[in-house]
Amino acid sequence: MNIFRLAGDVSHLVAIIILLLKIWKTRSCAGISGKSQILFASVFVTRYLDLFTIFISLYNSSMKIIYISCSIATVYLVYFKFKATYDGNHDTFRVEFLVVPVGGLSFLVNHDFSPMEILWTFSIYLESVAILPQLFMISKTGEAETITTHYLFFLGLYRGLYLINWIWRYYFEGFFDLIAIVAGLVQTVLYCDFFYLYVTKVLKGKKLSLPA
């Protein structure tokens, strides 16, 4: 464990909690892409199946349980409890265009052709594009609530910190995982446009609105 990975995990946890609190407190999931939340929930479920087979540390296991339970709770809030506030008309990204290629790629490019490894690889590839429905929805509505932009900022930051963690681990431990690194790069690059808007607008107290 190094400071960058820990900061990344904390940033990820903050993002997940911000979203959950936003929906719970405002009792509304306006502006939130339910499709992205379903993708994130499946990312965690497919990646953390080893929760019951391998014990790494209390930290590792508890974080996995928190991630899985919060993401499933968020999906529940969006599609069941606060379904009336779900903006389905703008959440129209065709996720099959993500899941099918990612599924195929995880069979073709992986470290080991075993069920657990293929599911892990699927999860890594899926996570790199899981935010697309959310970014697509914001581009369609032309704006995002400020709290939602903070959620996206910490979510995008987490994998960026993981990239630094992988540089650190390569330099100090000679460890690197090309699949995770390439997917992490793609994932972080997808946020660059948003990061620019976040820094130039939201941090200056303006609302995030895209030229519709």
Binding site: R5, D9, H12, D50, I54, I56, S57, N60, M63, K64, Y67, H111, W120, Y162, N165, Y170, E173, G174, F175, F176, D177, L178, I179, A180
Partner: peptide, 10 residues
Amino acid sequence: TILKREKDEL
């Protein structure tokens, strides 16, 4: 270098 990933990352 260790190419294989240890399952220690989230």
